[in-house]
């Protein structure tokens, strides 16, 4: 039988899915064991048990100086920045996407500009953001907004343009004004795409968040990682990395479920 026609059974599929995780874990353990055997105080690849201990400490024990459990505070502030940034970008993406997709005048005015603007590397203008908005929350949120909004606008406006022209004509023959077409024909069909595009841009959003936090902050997941880097605290860094990954995964999963539930008509497209 051809390879392309050979499919794993259910148990095998599950095992195969777990396999890469096991492989990475095993490789890490072997590397760590080897280094610790040579030098028991090696900090580069701490033993897995050390990481688990550290994780437990980070999640449950308050900081000696401030009396707060820092990891939770870091998480809360980072998620807040992320939510604000992606939320604003999503709203902007929707508004501009609808305008560009539906209105020829807006399209002529904006689509070229957005294409050029999306080529600006966001991290390169981070210093400008710090200068303009200061080192507070605004500049971090703005970096996320500027980083992902051009992509959202381009993606969503294209989705509006992809709506079959027949539907737009049909709506007009039912007496719909431009506003009604935007509100009742384009917007609802855009929502699943919005969630999809936000899912795709969450990766970059995390990147911009951590970058901004690493450079100028006193709280946040990215700040913490770059802070403890100075002490080579690999156990802390790894705990944070795994925690961030988990957060990102859960957010992605939740968005996917939301789209499935909220837009039953969109079928398997998600």
């Amino acid at each position: 039988m051809r390879l392309i026609n050979q499919k794993p059974g259910r148990v095998l599929a599950l095992f195969l899915a777990i396999l890469p995780f096991l492989a990475v874990l095993l490789a890490y353990k072997m590397g760590s064991d080897a280094r610790l055997a040579v030098n028991p105080s090696d900090k580069l690849l701490p033993a897995i048990s050390t990481i688990v201990d550290t994780a437990e400490r980070l999640f449950t024990q308050p900081d000696r100086r401030s009396g707060r459990i820092l990891l939770w505070h870091d998480t809360a502030i980072s998620l807040q920045r992320l939510a604000l940034g992606t939320g604003i970008a999503a709203l902007g993406g929707l508004a501009f996407g609808l305008a560009i997709g539906l209105l020829p005048h807006a399209r002529s005015t904006l689509s070229g500009f957005v294409s050029v603007a999306s080529m600006v590397p966001p991290l390169a203008i981070l210093p400008i953001l710090f200068i303009v908005f200061g080192l507070g929350e605004t500049s971090k949120v703005m970096l996320i907004v500027i980083g992902i909004m051009p992509f959202l606008i381009r993606d969503l406006s294209q989705r509006v343009l992809d709506i079959p022209h027949e539907q737009i004509i049909k709506a007009q023959t039912l007496g719909a004004s431009t506003g009604v077409i935007a509100l009742r024909v384009a917007l609802p069909q855009l929502m699943p795409n919005l969630i999809q595009s936000v899912r795709l841009s969450l990766g970059p959003a995390w990147l911009f968040l951590i970058a901004a936090e690493a450079i100028a902050s006193d709280l946040g997941l990215g700040y913490r990682i770059f802070l403890v880097r100075r002490y080579l605290a690999m156990d802390v860094i790894l705990t944070y990395v795994i925690w961030i990954t988990l957060l990102a995964f859960v957010i992605d999963w939740a968005l996917k479920q939301t789209a499935r539930k909220a837009f039953p008509w969109s079928g398997e497209a998600l």
């Binding site: 709506a171 039912l174 007496g175 719909a176 004004s177 506003g179 009604v180 509100l183 009742r184």
Partner: peptide
């Protein structure tokens, strides 16, 4: 939709 699309906000 044949009735609602003709209204102000649809």
């Amino acid at each position: 939709a044949a009735e609602s699309f003709g209204t102000r906000f649809g």
